[in-house]
Structure formats: structure tokens, C-alpha cells
Design a protein around this nucleic acid. Structure first.
Lengths: 192, 192
DNA sequence: CGTGAGGTTGATCCAGGTCAAGTGAAGTGG
DNA sequence: CCACTTCACTTGACCTGGATCAACCTCACG
């Protein structure tokens, strides 16, 4: 957790927290509040008996840790995939409204379908879909935009490939012209 | 949809509907209510631009079609994987309670993690996990139990394998002794 | 009984896993 | 400011698990 800032936004004041790539936001079993992803991306992992397994990917607008309102603690580990900003969800305590919950529920189901699609098809398309997903959710409808790429390890976990295969896929995407390298682990993407 | 029955259950009367394997419960875009899965299993598919893609698997206790309360129509296709019984969810209309929605939300996130785990590891373990998932959710803590196996096609879609590979995996599981054939597309499973 | 959909099994091929040997960038201590 | 370390990424060579293609079998149902 790097910084906290108070931003006036519309009529209400919001508190947000920025996280850097690789940071742990929370771990399963610990206590805390539910968060909304303002920007960036977060991976949720189920820490199974043996090791930690990728469970799903939260992007801008998604709510993470909602189960804490029910169980009092988190069910998953949350780690930053690309630098992100979080804000508290449902600041005013008490019984959350049905409407907000229904929207969150619909979003989670959509997110599930997206995550599953990242594990179908060949390596090149999985990685392409992942990168487009990260960009489009962050900055929709811009012809060319910048992105902070996740680590190969994260992309490999998400797509169920190896880091080597992801690296090769990204090389191909660069040759294709989808990605242009822009410094260390940053790229610009052609979305047109 | 094969039959409707009214069952006294506790103090309240419930209406349930039984579906046979392969039946379509609803399609994306159509109107209807939200359902709770009483038994059996249902696959939800996103009908993408090209073809229908597996999005997630609903088991006993899961709610499907909740998005209809928000959008007025379904977002996914729902098809029966193994014979199932559904009941309406939130019979009395109006704003659903926060508690019930939170539970449903937590269940969906759990379901996502389960579905993702069916697309990790080698073919044998994916199929094994799928079968154990279908059994455990249906009849927990029984040493040996019966199961109506889904079609190879369904199992292949869910695990992102081919039908041939699933068939070979099931043969191995039979040799292992996990599965015993009991007639056409039925089996008993050793859960001890 | 005949037909068709689903399941099984074998042979072959290749995408991606695995192993290994680099390279480049960000730090770190002198 | 510069060695030195370290971690992430890259690239090559090889091998294997599962896809693909094909032939066949089995049950359910009309």
C-alpha cells in the first residue's frame, strides 16, 4: 500500500489507495473491508492444500472481498497484477442495497466468463485476449494506449501457460504490431 | 422441462421443475425468473460472436439467472449437464434481501474458483476433479454413490479437452477403481 | 431391427512443456 | 560512479501429452 489520497469526486469525498505491481492486498482468512477496483487489475487466488491457485481476475469496476461482509474474513488472497487503485466499497455500513449487490453479482458472473475464456484456445490467442482485456477495461475506445504489462509469471498463471510460452506469444504480438515496447515492462497497444 | 411438482417442505410449499440431460433451460436474451439448483448440474454458456463458449458450472445450491432481476433478461444460455431439479429463487418479488444476495455472491466466487481449477493440470486430474465435484456437491460424505455421467461433449467443453481425451481419462479412472460402470452412462464412485 | 447419436480405441502429429543457457535492468554496497 | 548481485525476461533444443483423424462399437429408440 503506497499512498492514500482524498479526492473530491462529484459531491462525495472518496478515499483511495494505490498499490504497486506484485503487492499483496490481503490474504485469505484475514479481516478487512470490501474494495472496488478503481483502476488496474487484481488476481484472486485460492490457497489450496498444496499451493496457491489462480481463481479469478478483477478489473476496473469489480468488487473484491465482498465475502468479508458475510463471513467476517476474506476467502481468497488478493495480489496486484498491474498497478491499481482501490476504494472502499459500501462505505456506510449496514445492510447493502439489493440493487448494488445485484449489479456486483452480474459483474462477477461476467468476470467468470472472461476468466474462463483466458483458458481456451491456443497460447497466442489467450495472451492476446488477456492483454486486450487489461487495456479495454482500463481505457476503452482509445485507438492506441499505454499499458503496464503484468509479469510473465502472472500472465502464465492466469492463462495456464508457462512463462516461456507467454514470452514467445508476446514476441509474436510485437511482430504482429499489436504491441510496441515502451521501456521496461511497458507497452503501447494498437486497439484500432 | 419434464414435470412440475408441489412438495410440502418444512412449513412452506415449493414448486420445483425437473430437467433431463441435455435440455435447454433458458437462452441468453430471453425473459424469465432466477432459479436455484436443487440437485444436478447446469452449464452456463456465453454465446460469443462465433460460437457458444462454456462460462461456468452451477451445482446444487447455486443460483442461476440472477441477472434477470437486474436486466430483465438472461445473459447466458443454461443447459442441463446432469439431470437436475430447479426451484424458483426469491419467489416473492421486490427487492431481494442483502443477506441472501451476499450469500449468492460468495457462492458465485467459489464456483468461479472451482471452474478455473477444472482447466488446470493434466487431463486425468481435470476429469477426476470434475467428477468428484459433481458427486460431492450432490451427495456429500457418502462412501460410495451413484452418478449420472454427463456426455463426453459436456465434460470436454468444461475441461477444455477433447471428447476423445475425456473418454481415455475415464477409462483410466475405471482402471484406477474410482469409477465403476453401472449401465449406460451411469457409474458408482468410490469417495472413501 | 435398423438407424443414429454417443462412446471407445488406435495411429500420427504438433503446440506447448521442460530444460538449459544466455541477456538486460534495477538495485546495492563500496 | 562503478562492480556485483539478482530477478525477470528471452531464446534455443528437445520431448511429450493431448489434438486430430479414422475406424469401429453400443445403446436407446422408433
Amino acid at each position: 500500500m503506497q499512498q492514500e489520497s482524498r479526492l473530491g469526486e462529484g459531491t462525495e469525498e472518496k478515499i483511495t489507495t494505490s498499490y504497486r505491481a506484485g503487492e499483496v492486498i490481503y490474504t485469505a482468512g484475514s479481516r478487512g473491508i470490501a474494495w472496488r477496483v478503481i483502476s488496474g487489475s487484481v488476481r484472486l487466488d485460492r490457497n489450496g492444500p498444496d499451493e496457491s491457485l489462480f481463481a479469478s481476475l478483477a478489473l476496473r469496476g469489480d468488487v473484491i472481498g465482498a465475502e468479508t461482509l458475510l463471513f467476517g474474513c476474506y476467502s481468497f488472497d488478493a495480489r496486484v497484477v498491474s498497478p491499481c487503485v482501490l476504494g472502499p466499497w459500501l462505505e456506510r455500513q449496514g445492510c447493502p442495497s439489493g440493487e448494488a449487490l445485484l449489479q456486483t453479482l452480474a459483474k462477477v458472473e461476467h468476470r467468470t466468463a472472461n476468466a474462463m475464456s483466458l483458458r481456451s484456445g491456443d497460447a497466442l490467442n489467450r495472451v492476446r485476449r488477456l492483454i486486450l482485456m487489461l487495456v479495454q477495461e482500463d481505457a476503452p475506445s482509445v485507438p492506441s494506449t499505454q499499458i503496464a504489462l503484468p509479469t510473465l509469471r502472472d500472465m502464465a498463471d492466469i492463462t495456464d501457460l508457462t512463462a516461456e510460452t507467454v514470452s514467445r506469444a508476446i514476441s509474436k504480438l510485437r511482430k504482429e504490431g499489436l504491441l510496441n515496447r515502451e521501456g521496461w515492462r511497458h507497452a503501447s497497444i494498437r486497439t484500432g
